[in-house]
Design a binder for these strands. Structure first.
Length: 553
RNA sequence: GCGCCCGUAGCUCAGUUGGAUAGAGCACCCGACUUCUAAUCGGACGGUCGCAGGUUCGAAUCCUGCCGGGCGCGCCA
């Protein structure tokens, strides 16, 4: 099954010929559709890149090369005409035979077209979202979820062995505060005057959890709340966390995001891993005592200042647990660790690299893609979001508002490294102004045609002539393998979303100019291959960003 | 002040081994349904690619400086 682009064999043949023209010099022929379709189907600048080492005029090289194309193996029969243009570009027009064979090959490869290009194939552990179990995931987490899951799917598609993990920060003062907040709401439900701590969690979801707890335990703890009993608070913290986590996993699953594991920070403390991590750092000279605290010498690894691991009061910091966690991850045998973090954590990268390096691993095994902020706009104005005021939009609310497909498409449409505004009015629209439907509609239209004309006539050769829209659509399909490859290398699902928009546009244009049902046999055969190929690439691409590809709309 | 990200059409943004006349969506305007889905298509409008230098056949892309915006800089997590 071919997973490569139908352009690849042409590029290889062209490079071979170019190398011979240039006296054996190494040649890599970049061969791609030109900016302007009037120049032809494909263009290459190989003559210009060879000009320097061959010490010849690029146009001269191009002329020689063009002279050989008509008889060159792998090019003859596929290239209809070749012209030299500008400073030394070579513009190629391809034959209907090439288009017909390419469409057939892509259609037959189906879901495998573009798959498995990772080189080398790696075992990759990707950690993302990892929001605290003290509240529901919000829009920022939604972007990280859409991004992380998209990256994971793309990595898997490329042939990597991927594990997805969610780190649960279920330890420390925040959990105590959370437990106290739940307990207070629970008390209120029983008619007590218990109050949520000043710096506690005020959101309405805390009350919802308290209600669930009341349903579970009734008024059993009523008399131990005022003043609060330590053991009861611990119990509320634990059960509250479990209920919160259940909500989080529920919303994440609804968002079509999958995790293989939820890793609890508490297990690191209780199992002694945190202490062992600190001892290892001390033993290797990476940690030292200063003013009663234990410091991690992260400056040795490029951080701007050293960081505290254990406070002078004896308690460990968040970093201490992260040391244990990352030493654990680094020792699992993965080739690469991906930590997807929000923009507000970018200062943490140096520390994490230090952990990996201090553990004796190559710090380059750790990659930390930073997902920039997303803000919501509605009615042309920024939607104010405040955790304190409880006006934060949660993942669940976003899904209820605009739907999973629109949310996932919009959140990965832009590069993760740029902050952007999500326009709720556009995302919510079920009409033509919503880009996600534009792509899905292309898929549904193809399904409609294929339902009417499922079988191609036998023994049909290539059509005599091609419509410009047919050429454009197939050439767009030919770019898919390079697009996924780039999305994999750059950890950039937005490349897939952008490509799907381009592909859908070429399809809709094709649809308007070219009919399928009732045309001449060789035309039907070619266009059916084209449709199957297009449907397959759209479905695969949408699948990689977690969006459904409906057959009817 | 230092670090990361960003500055491209009215708005939101694509554009990464440097390539020909810089693109899309939204908004606005003009056209196209007796046909396989008009959630569509065709056309028009819209640009000092933040500014100034540099590198070269060629720069939105690479380098330097400056201006502007977001985020971060804790013995918080």
């Amino acid at each position: 099954m071919p997973t490569h682009s139908p352009i690849t064999p042409l590029a290889l043949a062209l490079a071979r010929e170019a190398s011979q023209v240039a006296g054996g010099a190494d040649a890599v022929a970049m061969l791609e559709p030109p900016a302007n379709a009037e120049f032809g189907d494909l263009a290459t600048n190989v003559a210009m890149t060879l000009a320097k080492q061959a010490k010849r005029n690029p146009r001269e090289i191009a002329d020689d090369l063009v002279g050989r194309i008509g008889s060159a193996d792998g090019l003859a029969g596929y290239v209809e005409s070749a012209e030299v243009a500008g400073p030394g570009f070579i513009n190629l027009t391809l034959s209907p035979r090439w288009f017909a064979e390419a469409a057939r090959a892509i259609a037959e490869a189906g879901d495998d077209y573009g798959r498995g290009q990772a080189d080398p194939r790696e075992r990759i552990l990707i950690e993302f979202v990892s929001c605290n179990p003290t509240g529901p995931p919000h829009v920022g987490h939604a972007r990280q979820a859409a991004y992380g899951d998209g990256v994971a799917r793309i990595l898997e598609y490329a042939g990597h062995d991927v594990t997805r993990e969610f780190y649960v920060n279920d330890w420390g003062r925040q959990m105590e505060l959370f437990g106290a907040s739940v307990a207070a709401r629970y008390g209120q439900l029983l008619g007590l005057a218990t109050e949520v701590p000043e710096d506690g969690y005020q959101g309405g979801y805390v009350t919802a959890i308290a209600e669930k707890l009341r349903d579970e335990v009734g008024d059993r703890y009523r008399d131990q709340l005022d003043p609060p009993d330590a053991e009861v608070l611990a119990l509320f913290a634990l059960r509250g966390k479990e209920l919160m986590l259940a909500t989080i996993t529920e919303e994440i699953a609804r968002f079509r995001v999958r995790f293989d594991a939820f890793f609890s920070e508490t297990t690191l403390h209780q199992g002694g891993a945190v202490e062992r991590g600190l001892e290892a750092l001390i033993a290797s000279g990476d940690a030292y005592e200063h003013e009663g605290a234990l410091w991690f010498r992260t400056t040795s690894y490029g951080d701007e200042k050293d960081r505290v691991l254990r406070r002078s009061d004896g308690s460990t910091t968040y970093l201490a647990a992260d040391v244990a966690y990352h030493l654990d991850k680094a020792a699992r045998g993965d080739d690469r660790l991906l930590d997807v973090l929000g923009a507000d954590h970018h200062g943490y990268i140096a520390r994490l690299r230090a952990v990996i390096a201090a553990g004796g691993h190559d710090p380059d095994m750790l990659e930390v893609p930073i997902v920039q902020l997303v803000s919501l706009t509605e009615g042309g104005e920024a939607k104010r979001m405040s955790k304190r005021a409880g006006t934060l939009v949660t993942l669940g609310e976003l899904i209820d508002d605009i739907g999973v497909d629109a949310a996932r498409f919009f959140l990965v449409q832009r590069s993760h490294e740029t902050a952007f505004d999500l326009d709720l009015d556009v995302a919510r629209a079920e009409g033509n102004e919503n880009p996600v439907y534009y792509v899905q509609y292309a898929h549904a239209r193809i399904a409609g045609i294929l339902a009417q004309q499922p079988e191609a006539p036998a023994d049909a050769g290539p059509p005599a002539e091609l419509d410009p829209a047919e050429r454009a659509l197939l050439l767009q399909l030919a770019l898919w393998p390079e697009v996924v490859h780039e999305a994999e290398r750059r950890r950039s699902p937005h490349r897939v979303a952008a490509y799907l928009m381009d592909l859908a546009r070429d399809f809709h244009a094709f649809y308007h100019r070219c009919r399928v049902v009732g045309e001449a046999p060789e035309v039907v055969a070619f266009r059916l291959d084209l449709l199957r190929a297009t449907r397959s690439v759209i479905a695969t691409g949408l699948g990689l960003i977690g969006v459904e590809a409906p057959d009817r709309m």
